[in-house]
Simulated assay, not measured.
Amino acid sequence: MAKRRYELTETRIAKLQKEGRGEGIGPDYQPWIRIHDFSSNGRVHRRYSQKVRRIVQLLSDIEEDIFLKFDASDLVVDIREQFPLPRADTLRIAELHGTRHPCVKGVVAVMSTDFVIDLPGPRRIAIAVKSGDELAKRRVCEKLDIERSYWLERGHEWHLVVDDAVSHDERLHLQQTAEWASLDLLEGVEGWDGRAQDLMLEIFAAAPRERLLDVLRRVEERCGWEAGDALALAKHLLAIRSLIFIGDGRLDVFGPVEQLDRREASDVLAA
């Protein structure tokens, strides 16, 4: 569990509010909690979001997994992590439920939601991310009930995501795709727009069960590309969602072409 680097006081809360924590949208949003606010023995992550064009603060491996799924979704408009809830509202809900509100040494804490996801419509979904071990604790469940009630009062969906929602292979695929998007795989090579069209035509003209590696090699030979160019381009197209991966787990170049499909709106939020 993360330990606070800064002692929670009313002065500290006022300072964070003055900084604009929990405010803004898109690239201007500032999360209520940042990694440097804690001295943690656990794993934390800072990921660049292709969706909102800023560094996202993630406090656990589970949060990273869920963030990468949302960041890759065509349906998501905005992602806001560590989103603060007004204390007046959470205090009222806690009293209504007969539950103790979270406090630290007598200071009423600001509760937060792990992710707030905006979709077209407008539609908003609040996401709490927990491990199975945490859910075995009564106090954790009491705090989740306050959070859930806050969002339902406002007519928004609230979902609890547990750490087994993302498989090991899917986690690796999501991490790889994020890296392909952040690296300039096409640096120093011209004409990639035309090459992308050639590659897409070759992929979708192939038999569904043909090995993807054979298709990539064939387009390299036919078009006179360097070895590895087709795979680099396929990775890039996956990262920017021009191609979508529909297989189980992660991309397997030795697997069939039918792992890949043309871009279309696909809801990855159900998992």
Rank of each mutant, 00 (worst) to 15 (best):
H159M: 11
A126Q: 00
Y150N: 01
A128C: 03
C141S: 08
D114Q: 03
P102S: 04
A136V: 12
W158E: 00
T113L: 00
K105R: 15
R139L: 07
R123N: 14
K130G: 04
W158D: 05
K137P: 07
D114M: 05
L160C: 02
R148H: 08
I125N: 05
A136F: 08
L119A: 05
V108C: 09
S149H: 11
R124P: 08
E153T: 05
I125A: 08
G98T: 06
E147N: 10
K130R: 15
T99C: 08
L160M: 03
L144W: 07
S112N: 13
D114F: 03
P120F: 07
V166D: 07
K130N: 08
I146C: 01
V162R: 14
K137F: 07
D133K: 15
W158Q: 00
K105S: 15
D133M: 13
A109W: 09
R138D: 13
L152D: 01
D164F: 10
M111I: 10
R100Q: 12
P122S: 13
C103G: 08
R148T: 04
V161E: 04
L119M: 11
V110M: 12
D133G: 13
V108D: 08
C103E: 14
H101C: 06
R123K: 14
R124H: 01
I117M: 04
S131Y: 12
G155R: 01
L144R: 04
P120H: 11
R123D: 14
H159G: 09
R148V: 00
H159D: 10
P120D: 13
A126K: 00
L144Y: 06
R139F: 06
Y150L: 02
W158L: 00
R100H: 13
